[in-house]
């Protein structure tokens, strides 16, 4: 397959006495969408935060398009981050800014475009995720699904090469969730971006993933196509994807 875009090499991370990542290794290639699955609290979000440099590993390396994040200075890291777009679980829209200001936030910070131009671009991006006429509303006035869409529009504003999705369908009704899944697939097809999503929603995972990685006890247990994961011989993976409470994963 293609060249590696993101590499996690033997990453360790613990919070206090609680080890979360224990030697996670994963390679994500350019243009593919990788979905990381795993139980709640197993460190999926932590992996995502490592990829975008919000956290630094205790041990191991995170390499994004050939650059070791740990060696980058603040400015170089910011430069690299311009390649990323991230959709947060709760959308993380800025409460004090209107919808279009949210979408155009990066444009305002990084470019010298006028407010009118920024608003025009924001409206275009919002139309791209299926939202019209909401640009002057405040985030508090939006429903959960709309927030996610605005968040996606914001993540796309700077035309990133890599899109990160933190639980894109969590908290949405099945129809809205499917709509978001559709959008993610469409983004990949249209914009050829590399995608990394974390989720425990298997419907979503099968729909958007090129490959799926299972995170268990701080390590990547198995990486494979959705079919390979679906028919995995590994009892842990099998228990997780079938959603059974009986098996080696202890629920209590």
């Amino acid at each position: 397959m293609g060249e590696p875009m993101i590499q996690l090499i033997d990453v360790y991370k613990s919070f206090g006495d609680n080890p979360v990542l224990r030697g996670a290794t994963l390679t994500i290639e350019r243009g593919e969408t990788m979905v990381i699955i795993g139980g709640s609290g197993t460190g999926k979000s932590v992996i995502l935060k490592h990829i975008i440099g919000l956290m630094k590993p205790d041990r191991g390396k995170v390499v994004v398009s050939g650059k070791d994040l740990a060696t980058l200075k603040e400015r170089a890291l910011d430069e690299l981050r311009k390649k990323f777009g991230m959709l947060f679980q709760g959308a993380a829209l800025f409460d004090s800014l209107s919808v279009w200001e949210n979408v155009g936030f990066s444009l305002r910070q990084q470019t010298h475009l006028s407010d009118r131009e920024i608003k025009q671009l924001a409206v275009e991006k919002l139309a791209g995720v299926g939202l019209r006429g909401v640009e002057d509303r405040m985030p508090a006035d939006l429903s959960g699904g709309m927030k996610k869409r605005v968040g996606l529009a914001r993540a796309l504003a700077m035309e990133p090469e890599i899109l990160l999705y933190d639980e894109p369908t969590t908290g949405l009704d099945p129809i809205m969730a499917d709509a978001i899944n559709e959008l993610i697939v469409e983004m990949k097809r249209r914009l050829k971006v590399t995608g990394v999503a974390i989720t425990h929603d298997m419907t979503s995972a099968y729909k958007i993933a090129d490959r799926i990685a299972m995170l268990y006890q701080g390590k990547i247990l198995q990486v494979g196509t959705p079919d390979a994961i679906k028919n995995s011989g590994n009892p842990i993976v099998h228990q997780f994807v079938t959603g059974s409470s009986v098996g080696p994963i202890k629920t209590v």
Binding site: G53, M86, A92, S106, Q110, L164
Partner: peptide, 25 residues
Amino acid sequence: AELGTMRVTEQIDALSTMATNPIKY
């Protein structure tokens, strides 16, 4: 209160991911 809310709703992380330093902003 404002910054605390921004922290728990990941708005501060969002700033970082958009290459904007939260301390500066």
